[in-house]
């Protein structure tokens, strides 16, 4: 393997990794606040991708409008799912919540088959072209994807660390009861978390379509599960962890493909999950869970 090929694969890896990272952030933020593995999160991306597809391929709307539509619909859908499916179960055992999330995931996938059809929808790439960086051929899509993701992560860090909504989210995730006693609204804070996570998924769906140019009803499940592995690897509940985990999984996939095992790249990702769960279940940056006595 030549050096330039390695660099090219690294850039590919960062590109897919940034989509994983955006999706993983949604997983991690929701887990951090209500301890729910929201398995419907990947399917939100699928819905976002269809929005982009229909906006551009069917209605010939400008890409900016399509992107705004995807983000808006994803956000509303995320909050809607939270209100309808998860809020009534707030005091239920966590297992009920988890099973509900899996149910919502099936509902969205099968609903999408019904509404959009079971076939794959292909569209023309939104961003084309590439340029030479030394010996390496770099596509504009890769650069746009990485830059957009990093910019969004910086914006997210600002929201979480410097705004009242972000501080409320951190407070609720640390101690729900105490946060309420300080006058912080649980409903609003949890909805805000779902909104932000789903908006990130919406952006992820746009970036995913830029790279793969096709939407299908089940596209969200593999993407969602890989993002989940990324969130676990980074330490579930941790925001920087989700970013690091996403990039790591993306680069790992690309490297496995680069050495000639591209058939095995999914297996490699799940091997990572098994290894993390066996040897370091808290991931890179996760916290030890202390059961309250």
């Amino acid at each position: 393997m030549t050096f330039s090929l390695l660099i090219a694969q690294l850039i590919n890896g960062l590109q897919t990794g940034s989509v994983y990272a955006l999706v993983a952030l949604g997983y991690s933020m929701v887990y951090g606040i209500i301890k729910l593995l929201n398995f419907a999160h990947g399917d939100i991306i699928m819905v976002g991708a269809y929005m982009v597809y229909y906006a551009i391929a069917s209605f010939a709307l400008p890409p900016v409008v399509a992107i705004a539509l995807a983000v808006l619909v994803s956000t509303l859908l995320g909050v809607f799912v939270e209100k309808v499916a998860y809020t009534p179960l707030r005091s239920a055992p966590r297992l009920s919540l988890l099973i509900t999330a899996i149910g919502v995931s099936f509902l969205l996938e099968n609903g999408a088959q019904l509404v959009f059809g079971a076939d794959q929808k292909s569209m023309d790439p939104m961003i084309t072209g590439s340029f030479m960086m030394g010996q390496v051929n770099v596509s504009y899509v890769a650069i746009v994807t990485i830059v957009v993701s990093v910019a969004i992560m910086i914006l997210l860090s600002f929201v979480v660390n410097k705004t009242k909504a972000g501080k409320a989210m951190r407070a609720v995730s640390e101690d729900m009861g105490a946060a309420q006693l300080m006058g912080i609204s649980l409903n609003r804070t949890i909805s805000m978390t779902f909104a932000i996570g789903s908006a990130l998924a919406g952006v992820g769906s746009v970036l995913y379509l830029c790279a793969y140019t096709q939407a299908s009803p089940t596209m969200g499940s593999m993407l969602g599960i890989k993002a989940f592995v990324a969130a676990v690897l980074g330490g579930i509940g941790s925001i920087p962890g989700a970013m690091i985990g996403g990039f790591t999984i993306g680069v790992l996939e690309a490297l496995v493909a680069a050495v000639g095992f591209s058939m095995w790249k999914d297996a490699a990702v799940f091997l990572v999950l098994i290894i993390v769960l066996l040897f370091k279940p808290t991931g890179f940056l996760g916290k030890k869970i202390q059961e309250k006595v």
Binding site: K164, K167, M182, S185
Partner: peptide, 11 residues
């Protein structure tokens, strides 16, 4: 931030 959280709903 612990203290500022208490002003949260008043912002």
């Amino acid at each position: 931030d612990n203290v500022m959280n208490s002003f949260n709903t008043r912002m």
